[in-house]
Design a protein around this nucleic acid. Structure first.
Lengths: 354, 354
DNA sequence: CTGAAAGCGCTTACAG
DNA sequence: CTGAAAGCGCTTACAG
């Protein structure tokens, strides 16, 4: 049992918080018979508080349901209890998964998530992010691909002293930012291994825009792995597309037009793989009998398609959780980089070539 | 030209804002030679400011790039410059479209969007929303289906005096909340009309969960429109499912099992329509030749499927924009209800029955 | 139409 | 380990 303390009679006005109004630090201080500074120390987990005092005040805070006002705290700290998520139009499922992951990390932390889509191709988008960060005095921002690809954006955040975490396909130059590395290369390598094991030798790739680092990594992982297995991919079998369904259709039309078709296509995301499906269906090419297809993302679309699509899973929610955690942990410096590894989910879209 | 004013010499200390630091209301007041209260009036668009004073101060604010601190304002107002979006796990595209719409409305308004997913089936989710609203002192919240279905949630928000807008399939009892009515019934009616016009007479429906008002509305709109055209739907042709792909598969298996199959199926969202596709593909039932299918949502999935899916478009982004606008407009009381109407997007999944 | 004082609910810097 | 004073950048309530 804790030592019993004499009733505190030093409090001048010991009346309860008026109903309807929410308790403030002053109410807690008055009720507990301590100064507001002591309450503040407890809120901020300062070690400089006597154990008994801490326990008494914490019990009171729980009882009253006291939660410090984030705006008052933010004003005094000159920093808001908000985390920004900056992204540029990836697929909806990816955004939503990332948000769920971030919210997993922020739950009960006192931080909230503020979303900020942007267009990395528009001039002045970096200014837009800067205004967002400075005006809201954000505590930190998560940079999601492809916003996380842009060194100029990271540089700006460093200049204004805003902490940030970047989700990147491969570890790059060390910066002030925290890194969540998604190792896209490994996922593509696994896809290559799988096709090679099935016996495919004439394999094509539909890449994302090669200005995206994810597309560069996935392409490298795929091509290099096949090369290591003795399978070369001719230039004409590598078609750059735009990570969209429509661009996947165009690329597939190119690949499936001639007499001599590849026996397998690796599309660097599921949207483009769906484009391959459309072209194959229309042309009477049977998947997987006449053509094996692999996607990347393992989005819901993968199981909606028929036959269901073999695809590389990305663990997006975990990624978001880690990226947000890096921003709010007091010992954040202990965690400057983390890894999330993709892996292949085998479904029904591949079989050995005939 | 504006009247030329004599240079203001009344300012005691006319030095510029120190570099690195961002300007505050005090800097603006000092530089303009007015009191901070006058600057405050201008920030808040009070009419009680002389035109010349206003123009001079506004020019200065632009020049300095001054933006009032939302936390300081929020603390003084006892209300944050944040809008919450409360939703319960609809499809990713729906959430994202709604967010984009809300952000369209909030852009350059000084408000930011804070996302709050919840589980309306969990006990205590209403308490979770209440804590979110009260702790953050939210300016208002958007209630997205199915969170917007729950009268208890709206009632709680009224009790704590939080303004809110609800996105609902049909106008219901007037409450304190603003309403965006999506008229799901009309969209389903259009689907019914279309199938009837094509000549279908044996038509089935896969409904959403009938605890969702959207599902009730869509079902009623569809069934009643067909009835008005002299086409009855037997009980066995109406199967309740869960708005998910998997539940659509189960429902389609039921409907497509027997000898006597319907010639058309209306699925109350695209996810379930994709389930119908899967079952039909597997069973060798050709869409649209052997079976017409219509979905609801007009999600990206609709065009990814093969053949592309005829579906009811919802204008989700517009809906989100309106719902957010209702919360931040000063003359918000002028706009207590608005309508958004769905309409059918015809693609390749329907043709006349054989 | 304009302003000086007090306050929103916290924290920092200093003192003990 | 604890506290009184001043301040974060705004607004409200009052006065003129």
């Amino acid at each position: 049992m804790a030592t019993r303390k004499p009733p505190d009679t030093s409090t001048p006005a010991d009346k309860p918080t008026p109903p309807g109004k929410v308790a403030t630090i002053n109410d807690i201080a008055r009720l507990a018979g301590v100064s507001k500074k002591t309450v503040s120390r407890i809120i901020n987990r300062s070690p400089l508080v006597h154990k008994d005092t801490r326990e008494k005040v914490e019990a009171l805070m729980r009882e009253v349901g006291y939660v410090p006002d984030p705006m008052a705290r933010g004003l005094a700290f000159r920093r808001a209890f908000l985390i920004g998520m900056v992204y540029d139009n990836p697929t909806a499922q990816y955004i939503v998964d990332m948000q769920y992951g971030a919210l997993d990390a922020l739950r009960d932390s006192g931080f909230e998530l503020v979303v900020h889509p942007c267009d990395t191709r528009s001039t002045g988008y970096i200014d837009g992010v800067r205004r967002f960060v400075q005006q809201q005095k954000l505590h930190g921002v998560m940079l999601v691909p492809r916003a996380s690809d842009d060194p100029a954006l990271a540089r700006m955040l460093e200049e204004i002293g805003c902490r940030y975490s970047r989700i990147v396909p491969v570890a790059d130059d060390p910066t002030d930012g925290r890194l969540v590395v998604t190792h896209d290369r490994d996922g593509a390598a696994e896809a290559a291994d799988y096709l090679q094991t099935l016996g495919h030798r004439d394999i094509a790739v539909i890449t994302g825009p090669l200005s995206y680092r994810s597309a560069v990594e996935r392409t490298a992982g795929f091509v290099e792995t096949l090369a290591a297995r003795g399978i070369g991919i001719p230039k004409a079998r590598i078609v750059e597309a735009g990570y969209t369904f429509e661009s996947g259709v165009v690329a597939a039309e190119k690949l499936l037009a001639g007499r001599k078709r590849p026996t397998a296509i690796f599309a660097e995301n599921d949207e483009m793989a769906a484009g391959v499906y459309k072209v194959a269906m229309r042309a009477g090419i049977n998947i997987p009998r006449d053509l094996a297809v692999i996607g990347f993302d393992d989005s819901p679309l993968a199981s909606r398609l028929w036959p269901s699509l073999t695809s590389v899973r990305r663990h997006t929610r975990d990624t978001g959780r880690i990226a947000a955690t890096m921003l709010i942990r007091a010992d954040g410096d202990a965690m400057r980089a983390a890894s999330v590894r993709p892996h292949l989910i085998v479904r029904d879209s591949c079989q050995p070539p005939r």
